[in-house]
């Protein structure tokens, strides 16, 4: 028990727990064929939360160690400019339809989520955390914070949205008769961010590339659009 008290108070311990859990759940996910339902982040969150609750550890104690990983989200968000630039160079001739699709998709995602949640009496904190659910967690966490929502709730909802997008897209493509790889990939990137992009690679490299482009564009656009939208809808 003294051993435990010693280590539980050390930031190092929670850094090790976070990385170990993530490596294990990534391995497990690969063994299970990469299903978005058991995404390594979702499973890691579940396991670490259960572990913290069982050991009576507070989130603040955990975060003292985990903050060193969390800090890297900032530079990683800036780094999204690199793949965005690579894709941008290749598609700049078709930027207009791509931008239109991205903007329409991003606005649809935020407005419909806000309206449905509001109609079902969700609390204000939930509304402001649900708004950025279609963009990569790197951006959604920052956006939720700026809007006055809960960054951690936002990052959880982003992951669930990602898994939903991967499940809903194939039947919708069948119903709408969407057969083009680039359209499939781009749509997955707009609606389901990085998880959709990873899923798009199963349609082919081109679908994956368009997914990555869509993810970056949607993230950047949403970060600027949401504050306006939230005040237009009179939320917050």
């Amino acid at each position: 028990m003294e051993f435990w008290t010693f280590f539980a108070a050390r930031p190092l311990m929670w850094l090790i727990v976070t990385i170990t859990t993530f490596i294990a759940t990534s391995w497990l996910n690969r063994r299970l064929g990469g299903t978005p339902l058991l995404h390594p982040v979702l499973v890691s969150l579940f396991l670490i939360i259960v572990f913290l609750l069982l050991t009576g550890t507070s989130y603040e104690t955990y975060f003292e160690g985990a903050q060193f990983i969390h800090f890297l989200l900032g530079p990683a968000t800036v780094a999204l400019a690199v793949p965005l630039f690579d894709h941008f160079e290749r598609v700049k001739k078709l930027l207009l339809p791509l931008m239109l699709a991205c903007m329409a998709g991003a606005v649809t995602a935020a407005v419909s989520a806000l309206l449905v949640a509001q109609a079902l009496d969700a609390s204000l904190g939930t509304l402001l955390s649900i708004a950025p659910k279609s963009v990569t967690s790197a951006i959604a966490i920052g956006v939720a914070e700026k809007l006055g929502g809960y960054p951690s709730l936002a990052s959880g909802l982003v992951l669930i949205t990602g898994a939903l997008g991967c499940m809903l897209a194939p039947p919708i493509y069948r119903i709408l008769n969407i057969t083009d790889e680039a359209v499939k990939g781009f749509t997955l990137g707009v609606s389901a961010h990085g998880m959709g992009t990873a899923f798009a690679f199963e349609y082919g490299l081109m679908a994956g590339a368009f997914g990555g482009l869509a993810m970056g564009m949607t993230g950047a656009f949403t970060a600027f659009m949401l504050p306006l939208l939230v005040s237009l809808l009179g939320i917050g």
């Binding site: 976070t18 890691s44 913290l52 990983i69 969390h70 989200l73 951690s152 709730l153 990052s155």
Partner: peptide, 14 residues
């Protein structure tokens, strides 16, 4: 990138 979402996500427990 996915690993970097974990610390914030664990905040769901609050």
């Amino acid at each position: 990138l996915a690993l970097l979402f974990v610390p914030a996500g664990v905040g769901l427990m609050t």
